[in-house]
Design a binder for these strands. Structure first.
Length: 424
RNA sequence: GUGGAUGUAGCUCAGUUGGUCAGAGCACCAGGUUGUGGCCCUGGGGGUCGUGGGUUCGAGUCCCAUCUUCCACCCCA
């Protein structure tokens, strides 16, 4: 156990981590362009926040939270998602007193105690955004467009599923209709759905059992019960998406698992990455802020799972960076030149070059071999005779050609090789 | 939480009906004579055969338990 990581977690090692950085950088740039500012919240919160914010009856709260008591007997939980904490911070720091809307983004690890499988881990990573303070459908459109833009920039083609789950005014209507409908067919329902019928009939809509699916096809859905304002809102969102040229399918069986969702719900699906095909999703949560004790405040957001995003990118053959390589590697013909080597290395680095050298006292041959493996486009070789003349050997690793360069011109010459290497 | 599969060197895998079975390729390291990589040749290091029990004269090979990973369900990112 000492040398094994906890179940469902992973080490992101060099070679892999560059891909993460690439995706995260892309997201940051995107957020900047869309006007979202970063917020960093704690990785754990009072358990109560999630109970209230995410919902007591959800699977997340019921059986997936990492909950513990600290030394002062407070019940704390590792965050299972990012929205509740963002809403809490919005209230706690009185961001609701400033200019509205407030547009935030976050990145970081989330934790859910669940059985791991492809695309599902106990510690996973999300990037996400939240907008507080605007009820207008144009915001819904922006948020969805942004999420799709992000995936598009990464070379991904995803299916956008769109639905409206209504508001507290239309929910009871749906619930009633749905319960009546399923009750009339309860002999055909699976055991799970019978249970759902009592707890949350909405969930029966996306049951995977074939027979239930058949039933669900004709069942009333939230779209059949939208109140006037929800229906208009949904129409507007679609109108704006069309104006933006964003393809989507209305998926009336799309039910988001978290209690706080209202009106717009959407999900981005990537077939081909296993059963967990949802790369990201989100929606409107006009009641969340109020639920956790704030003033009525509309909100909308989404979260994207980075593990799944990367899976989908690999599946679809998107370009991802490989391991970072130095600009230049420094080798010396023998270790009596160690001082000179260290000096030169520092000089190169201070000129902005990524430079490295051998630290095992290896032979020149072994140093060259190692240099080749680092992928450095240039190698600088310190030779005694050349050094005496103020010259340094510079080798172009892609052609194998080498020449002597005056020490003063070295950095510039390396720069040329670096540019050549990066464009080829 | 439920069901199924998996687990041999860093990686991909061989290992007959339990008795030289602890191996191969790749990777790693060092050499192939004087101060130079990518090909080739030679040699070397490295594994309590996931872990813990049990059966047996003897188990990587059989049994049980446990852990991991994978697949599906549940649910979600």
């Amino acid at each position: 156990m000492l040398t094994t990581r906890p179940r469902g977690t992973s080490d992101i090692l060099p070679g892999e981590v560059e891909k993460w950085q690439y995706v995260e950088e892309c997201f940051r740039r995107l957020c900047r362009e869309y006007g979202y500012a970063e917020i960093r919240t704690p990785i754990f919160e009072h358990t109560e926040l999630f109970n209230r914010g995410v919902g007591d009856a959800t699977d997340i709260v019921e059986k997936e939270m990492y909950t513990f008591r600290d030394r002062s007997d407070r019940s704390l939980s590792l965050r299972p998602e990012g929205t509740a904490a963002a809403a809490r911070a919005y209230l706690e720091s009185n961001l609701n007193a400033g200019p509205q809307p407030v547009k935030l983004f976050y990145t970081g690890p989330m934790f859910r105690y669940d059985r791991p499988q492809a695309g599902r881990y106990r510690q996973f990573h999300q990037v996400g955004v939240e907008v507080f303070g605007s009820p207008r459908p144009a915001v819904d459109a922006e948020v969805i467009a942004m999420a799709m833009d992000f995936c598009g920039r990464l070379g991904l083609k995803l299916e956008l599923h769109l639905n409206s789950v209504g508001c507290p005014d239309c929910r009871p209507v749906l619930r009633e209709k749905l319960t009546a409908y399923f009750r009339a067919h309860q002999n055909d329902l699976c055991a799970d759905c019978l249970r759902r019928l009592a707890s949350n009939p909405l969930r029966a809509l996306d049951c995977k059992v074939p027979r239930c699916r058949e039933l669900a096809k004709n069942a009333p859905t939230s779209l059949d019960c939208l109140c006037g304002s929800c229906a208009a809102h949904f129409q507007d969102v679609q109108k704006y998406l069309k104006a933006l040229g964003i393809d989507y399918v209305v998926d009336r069986y799309l039910v988001r698992g978290l209690d706080y969702y209202t009106k717009t719900a959407f999900e981005m699906m990537a077939p081909g990455i296993g059963a967990q095909s949802s790369v990201g999703g989100g929606g409107r949560y006009d009641n969340l802020v109020e639920t956790i004790g704030g003033p009525p405040t509309p909100g909308i957001g989404y979260a994207i799972g980075l593990e799944r995003l990367l899976l989908a990118m690999q599946e679809q053959g998107s370009e991802l960076p490989g391991r970072d390589r130095p600009d230049v590697f420094l080798a010396s013909v023998d270790d009596t030149l160690e001082s000179e080597a260290l000096q030169l290395l520092q000089t190169l680095r201070q000129k902005g070059l990524a430079a490295d050298k051998d630290y095992l006292g290896r032979s020149l041959k072994a140093q060259m071999k190692y240099a080749g493996k680092t992928g450095a486009p240039a190698v600088v070789i310190l030779g005694k005779e050349e050094l005496a003349r103020g010259m340094i050997i510079l080798k172009d690793m892609t052609t194998g050609a080498q020449k002597e360069v005056p020490a003063a011109e070295l950095a510039e010459e390396i720069g040329k090789l670096r540019r050549k290497g990066s464009t080829s």
